[in-house]
């Protein structure tokens, strides 16, 4: 099986999700990595052992990238094309599938060979249901959900081939790409996450969550209301519209446990919940629950943890 993997590049770095997709491809067949535009990034991709095709296109324009993936897919006679489960991946995959007259599977968490076919596993309904899917189309197209594979081992660099994919059908013009969030928030790779929700009450008291995270060496997470109220930036959102996380320890403070939040944190090894409502649904998934006012509990917790250091 010949599998093409589109490797996304952000500010010169390969996107983690793309490397996970590359790992999935290497497990299943012969992987080829496709990098748009950037020769340095192509060299970085080559160390993961799969041959690299570097397509000379405008990597800022999704239509140009789609054209390149389509052209390389045809030229290489690929049986499958994998994308990262990022926003770009999720835009490109169904568009490619539509052009190739085939199906597409979103948010794949596992794959197995079933004869010549691939049997895909993916969550639906916020993760309470797991689906096994088959794509009867000729070309297999999917996006890999972040955190489902570990990135491949680096080794001796593979070959790099330059390619000119020709004219693409350009329908959008990029006017401006702005960076509003400058902090790097690595929720996906975090060992410990301390998250705060609407129950923290105010921007000032949300700082308790930040402080607890600091003493634990943890990354700060948040529910959607905490972000919409401007207590912390969007980069910290955990859940369906945020990041899917799987730390060893997840501490949820003043978070009710709505499915759209919990579906992003259910992969955590150990969940601690702090909530003043003893019937909050977060307690039904928590390994340890503290019933009470988070604004009183967190300062004491910080003190206790500091004492033991």
């Amino acid at each position: 099986m010949e599998i093409l993997v589109y490797i996304e590049v952000k500010e010169g770095e390969l996107v983690q999700g793309s490397l996970e997709a590359l790992a999935a491809a290497k497990e299943l067949g012969n992987a080829t990595a496709l990098v748009a535009g950037d020769a340095d990034a192509a060299a970085k991709a080559a160390v993961y052992g799969a041959p690299v095709v570097c397509a000379k296109v405008d990597a800022a324009n999704p239509d140009a990238i789609l054209g390149a993936v389509e052209a390389v897919c045809k030229a290489k006679n690929a049986d499958a094309v994998f994308f990262a489960g990022t926003q770009w991946g999720k835009d490109l995959a169904p568009r490619l599938a539509s052009r190739a007259k085939t199906g597409c599977i979103t948010d794949v968490t596992g794959m197995e060979k079933d004869g010549d076919a691939i049997l895909y596993t993916r969550p639906a309904f916020g993760g309470t249901v797991i689906e096994k899917m088959k794509n009867h189309g000729a070309l297999q197209v999917c996006t890999i959900r972040s955190g489902s594979y570990s990135k491949p081992e680096a080794g001796a660099p593979a070959s790099i081939e330059e390619c000119d994919p020709g004219e693409a059908d350009i329908r959008v013009k990029v006017l401006e790409a702005a960076k509003e969030i400058t902090e790097a928030v690595n929720l996906e790779g975090a060992d410990i996450i301390v998250s705060g929700g609407r129950g923290m009450g105010s921007k000032e008291d949300f700082q308790l969550v930040v402080e607890l995270a600091k003493v634990l060496g943890a990354t700060v997470g948040a529910s959607r209301p905490a972000i919409e109220d401007g207590w912390i930036s969007r980069a910290h959102q955990v859940g369906q519209s945020g990041k899917i996380v799987a730390p060893k320890l997840y501490i949820a403070c003043g978070i009710s446990g709505a499915m759209q939040h919990i579906s992003g944190a259910i992969g955590s090894k150990y969940i601690v919940a702090i909530n003043k409502d003893p019937d909050a649904s977060i307690f039904s998934v928590a390994d340890l629950g503290l019933v009470g006012d988070a604004k009183q509990i967190i300062p004491l917790l910080i003190e206790e943890i500091k004492k033991r250091k």
Partner: peptide, 24 residues
């Protein structure tokens, strides 16, 4: 093109211990 071959439910997380003492 796509067929759902089967549905399953993921293993359930058991609710753990809940602590609620008089004093925080």
């Amino acid at each position: 093109y796509v067929e759902c071959v089967s549905y399953t439910e993921p293993p359930k997380r058991e609710a753990g211990l809940k602590i609620q003492e008089k004093e925080v």
